[in-house]
């Protein structure tokens, strides 16, 4: 089937089988391999991307369901020379070890901060319930999100 969507600001028109998952479209066809597939069953959250600004698990969205929509992946968030405040906070707070869950953590955390809800240890942990990390124990991830939250709210002022 023919599919038109925008990924990280670039318009794409593609021919894909109907049973293509968004995660596979991003990784295999568009070679955006920062979106990771951990469990394939919408539990681990490592494939989280933004669909029209809302975080979704790309392993549980059909490419067909993104017709005409805008997808943002970790590759569209920042670059090594110009990190997004959330990326900078993850680095500064040592909020990653193996890094497999990190792109998805960052995308979900950005949505959480941008939602405008009050951020504290409890709300950040609840907000990240859909993202599993097997290395860090979450402590520094929470610290990074709170740090970036302040920086992002400062920027927005």
């Amino acid at each position: 089937m023919n599919l038109s969507l925008t990924v990280n600001g670039v318009e794409h028109s593609l021919d894909v089988p109907a049973n293509t998952l968004l995660a596979d479209l991003l990784r295999s066809q568009l070679r955006l391999t920062g979106t990771h597939v951990g469990c394939d069953t919408s539990q681990c959250g490592a494939c989280t991307v933004h669909l029209d600004g809302r975080s979704v698990k790309a392993c549980t969205v059909l490419a067909a369901q993104t017709q005409g929509r805008a997808v943002t992946t970790i590759e569209g968030i920042g670059s090594p020379d110009d990190l997004h405040p959330m990326q900078a906070a993850f680095r500064d707070c040592h909020a990653l070890q193996c890094g497999f869950c990190t792109p998805a953590m960052i995308l979900r955390a950005i949505e959480l901060v941008e939602s405008g809800s009050a951020l504290d240890n409890r709300t950040v942990r609840e907000g990240l319930e859909g993202n599993i990390c097997r290395c860090t124990g979450y402590h520094n991830i929470v610290k990074a999100v709170l740090t970036a939250g302040e920086a992002m709210q400062e920027q927005a002022r």
Binding site: G45, T48, K57, T60, E129, G130
Partner: peptide, 9 residues
């Protein structure tokens, strides 16, 4: 219900 990503879909 579920988690944030699940609630978004």
């Amino acid at each position: 219900v579920g988690d944030a990503q699940v609630r978004n879909r």
